[in-house]
Amino acid sequence: MKLHLNFVNVPLPARIVSIVDEAPDIKTFVIRYDRSAQVLPGQFVMLFPGRLWEIPISVAWTGDEEIALTIARVGKVTSALFQMNVGDKIGVRGPYGRPWPMDLLRDGRVLFVIGGLGLAPVLMAFEQLNKATLVYGARSSRFLLYRDRYDRWKREGKEVLLTVDRASEEWDGHVGVVTTLLDEEIVSSHDYAVVAGPPIMMKFASEMLEKLGMESDRIFLTLENHMKCGVGLCGHCRVGDKYVCVDGPVFSLKEIRRLEEWAAGEVI
């Protein structure tokens, strides 16, 4: 164990405790991992399915020596993960990354604007905050994650607004992209916004929030920018002069703007 601690790029052996089907091609893997207590909301771990290479995955929730990772099958490594079973050994490193600014968020009312799988990296933060509203959209109703929790959140006094991109028979709620649920009223009744989801959704949502009056240093996003090592060394996730895996993945919109300008060469 000690030796492992010395090498930041060597995973620790862990075990899959359970696998939950969340949606088509999306599963939650619950893994026994003795560093679960160190995980802060918004952090990620590096996961190694025993072959190929490691990938970064946000921690959805933690339990007693357990972490839960909600994963969509998109590439080679996630496909390898989807072939794994309960009881299999799996490599884990972490947690890593800058978490959501919980101290700040606890001070105010927080509007979560979330698309699809983006609910996973905000789940812990959302559940830990008392004054929070969730605006959540998915491709279709089958892709809404963690549906068994919505009633509890509502009971706790949190507002939960759902929408789907495509209507279907089993869905009688709102239809449209997530930004169609945003208006001046909802924005002005919150102090901070947390945005997570596909890049294009984050771009539109954060622009809209800003237009509706939220200042860019009160909007927080999480970037999953091609992290390979998780510890700020491999270089892949760099944007401008920041390394997303250690300087992020959580950034304020203001910080991201600065990075984008830097990367576009407008700031020296």
């Binding site: 072959r51 190929l52 290479w53 390979k228 090592c229 060394l233 491999c234 270089g235 892949h236």
Partner: peptide
């Protein structure tokens, strides 16, 4: 230049 990649 020290960017790296890890893989099996």
């Amino acid at each position: 230049c020290t960017c790296y990649n890890e893989r099996q």
